[in-house]
């Protein structure tokens, strides 16, 4: 770097030189910023949790409470459709805990888990509509109305699979306008008013600005497990134990999980 600067000083005219100098100043500032970010606070260990999109709010609250009781640990989350998280784990993503919206999805990475996955909460399907449900969409059958814009999750997404099963069991055919890759995508399209309705989880209606109604008799099971071959298995197990503990369960129920 000094060599380059020196040669610029020797050869370049004055204006050129000062511009060059400013350029390096910018680089130095960026370097300072980058290194500055890395050296804040005492050393902490991190638990990386890959969790189903439907757990976004609940697990953020779990993470906060967990960090309060474990000051030496930090939790970072990656929320996405369970099928997407499983695909990432198969590609070697550095997760220490995996929590999916159903058992079938987590079973696809059984060989990468440290033990059998446990069911830690239950959810229900729900119809999401605009606030106040102006179109009176309270049953699966009402979603078959022609001209209605219904959004579902894709067939590999747990909520999409569960919705397809529920529709099939009820003998109802719905023509969706979009197949989203996570339940949050369905909720967003309904919230923005682009879709009239979507099939989501009951928990997505809790404290949300979308309307809708839970569908009875559509229970789903959320599963959690630590991954094998991770640097600090005890930390991962501590997070799972916290989620399954009484305080952990209270948080989950406050977000509508059972």
């Amino acid at each position: 770097m000094t060599h380059l600067l020196a040669s610029a000083r020797r050869r370049g005219p004055g204006v050129h030189l000062s511009r060059r100098k400013r350029g390096w100043g910018g680089v130095a500032a960026v370097l300072l910023l980058v290194t500055g970010c890395g050296s804040s606070g005492p050393p902490q260990r991190t638990v990386t949790v890959f969790a189903a999109a439907s757990l976004t709010k609940a697990f953020q609250a779990e993470g906060k409470a967990f960090q309060d009781s474990h000051p030496d640990l930090r939790v970072t989350f990656s929320f996405a459709g369970s099928q997407s998280l499983v695909a990432q784990v198969q590609q070697g993503a550095p997760a220490s805990v995996l929590a999916t919206a159903d058992l079938a999805t987590i079973a696809a990475v059984k060989s990468r888990l440290s033990g059998p996955p446990v069911v830690f909460a239950h959810n229900q399907l729900a119809i999401a509509t605009a606030k106040g449900d102006p179109l009176h969409l309270t049953t699966l059958a009402s979603l078959a109305k022609p001209g209605l814009k219904v959004v579902l999750a894709g067939p590999t997404v747990p909520v999409g699979k569960a919705a397809a099963n529920a529709l099939k069991a009820a003998g109802i055919t719905v023509h969706p306008v979009s197949l989203e890759d996570a339940v949050t995508g369905v909720v967003t399209k309904v919230r923005l008013g682009e879709a009239d309705a979507g099939i989501v989880y009951a928990t997505d209606l809790t404290g949300s600005d979308v309307g809708g109604v839970a569908l009875s008799g559509t229970s789903t099971s959320l599963a959690i497990a630590a991954l094998s071959g991770i640097p600090a298995p005890a930390d991962a197990e501590a997070f799972i134990a916290f989620v399954r503990s009484d305080p952990g369960h209270t948080i989950l129920t406050s977000y509508g999980f059972q």
Partner: peptide, 10 residues
């Protein structure tokens, strides 16, 4: 903007 549906927007 357009969502994802095989045959129409995917």
């Amino acid at each position: 903007f357009a969502g994802s549906l095989p045959g129409r927007t995917q």
